[in-house]
Measured scan of single mutants.
Amino acid sequence: ENVVSAPMPGKVLRVLVRVGDRVRVGQGLLVLEAMKMENEIPSPRDGVVKRILVKEGEIVDTGQPLIELG
């Protein structure tokens, strides 16, 4: 699984990683606000951040690609 998608609609509050960062399974990639709750979106696997597909403040839909892992 190379693309991390939004599990719910919401607003991207914070991106916690940068392109080139090594991440571990379960590590927070970004914080999504949904229904006034902050939800940290975890990495599904170990890898390297290849691309960040959203910006802070952006509104996303369920299933929208957020981050690509390499």
Results as ranks from 00 to 15, higher is better:
Glu58Pro: 02
Pro42Gln: 14
Pro42Trp: 13
Met35Asn: 04
Leu16Cys: 01
Arg51Trp: 12
Ile41Ser: 09
Asn39Pro: 10
Arg51Gln: 14
Glu68Leu: 02
Met35Ala: 03
Val49Trp: 00
Glu56Thr: 07
Asp61Tyr: 09
Gly70Pro: 15
Val23Gln: 11
Gln27Pro: 09
Gly28Cys: 01
Gly57Cys: 01
Lys11Thr: 14
Val19Ile: 08
Arg14Gln: 06
Ile52Arg: 03
Ser5Asn: 13
Lys50Asp: 15
Lys50Ile: 13
Ile41Asn: 11
Met35Lys: 04
Leu29Trp: 06
Lys36Gly: 05
Val17Thr: 10
Pro42Thr: 11
Met8His: 13
Asp46Gly: 10
Leu66Lys: 00
Gln27Lys: 02
Ala34Asn: 12
Lys55Tyr: 06
Gly70Leu: 05
Val25Gly: 15
Ser5Pro: 10
Val17Pro: 11
Gly26Trp: 11
Pro7Phe: 06
Leu29Glu: 00
Pro9Cys: 01
Leu16Gln: 02
Leu53Arg: 03
Ile41Pro: 08
Val3Asp: 15
Pro44Asn: 14
Val25Trp: 12
Val12Asn: 02
Val48Ile: 12
Glu1Ala: 00
Val49Ala: 07
Lys36Ile: 06
Arg14Met: 12
Leu53Gln: 11
Glu1Pro: 00
Gln27Met: 02
Gly28His: 10
Ala34Ile: 07
Leu16Pro: 13
Val60Leu: 04
Asn2Lys: 03
Ala6Tyr: 14
Val49Glu: 00
Ala6Phe: 15
Ile59Pro: 10
Arg51His: 15
Ser43Arg: 00
Val17Ser: 09
Met8Gln: 03
Met35Trp: 08
Leu53Trp: 08
Pro44Ile: 14
Asn39His: 03
Asn39Met: 13
Gln27Asp: 03
Gln64Gly: 15
Ala34Asp: 09
Ile59His: 09
Gly63Tyr: 07
Met37Val: 08
Val4Leu: 13
Pro9Ile: 09
Glu58His: 06
Asp21His: 00
Glu38Trp: 06
Thr62Tyr: 08
Gly70Ile: 06
Lys55Trp: 08
Pro9Glu: 04
Thr62Met: 05
Ile41Cys: 00
Glu40Gln: 08
Pro7Tyr: 08
Val12Pro: 01
Arg45Pro: 14
Met35Val: 04
Gly20Gln: 12
Arg18Ile: 11
Gln27His: 02
Ala34Gln: 14
Ile41Ala: 05
Gly20Cys: 01
Val25Leu: 11
Val17Gly: 11
Arg45Met: 14
Arg18Glu: 07
Leu30Glu: 02
Leu29Phe: 02
Gln27Arg: 02
Val4Arg: 05
Val3Ser: 14
Glu1Tyr: 00
Gly20Ile: 09
Leu32Ala: 07
Pro44Thr: 15
Gly57Leu: 08
Gly20Asp: 14
Asn39Ile: 08
Leu66Ser: 05
Thr62Trp: 10
Ser43Leu: 02
Glu40Ser: 07
Asp21Ser: 02
Arg14Lys: 03
Asp61Gln: 09
Val31Leu: 13
Ile52Cys: 01
Gly10Val: 15
Arg45Phe: 15
Gly28Leu: 13
Thr62Phe: 14
Glu68His: 00
Val4Ser: 15
Leu30Ala: 13
Met8Ser: 15
Leu66Asp: 00
Leu32Gln: 10
Val31Asp: 11
Pro42Tyr: 13
Gln64Val: 11
Pro42Lys: 04
Gly57Gln: 10
Glu38Val: 07
Glu58Asn: 05
Leu13Ser: 13
Val12Trp: 01
Pro42Ala: 06
Val54Gln: 08
Asp21Cys: 01
Val48Cys: 01
Lys36Phe: 05
Ala6His: 08
Ile41Gly: 02
Gly70Lys: 07
Asp21Leu: 02
Val19Asp: 13
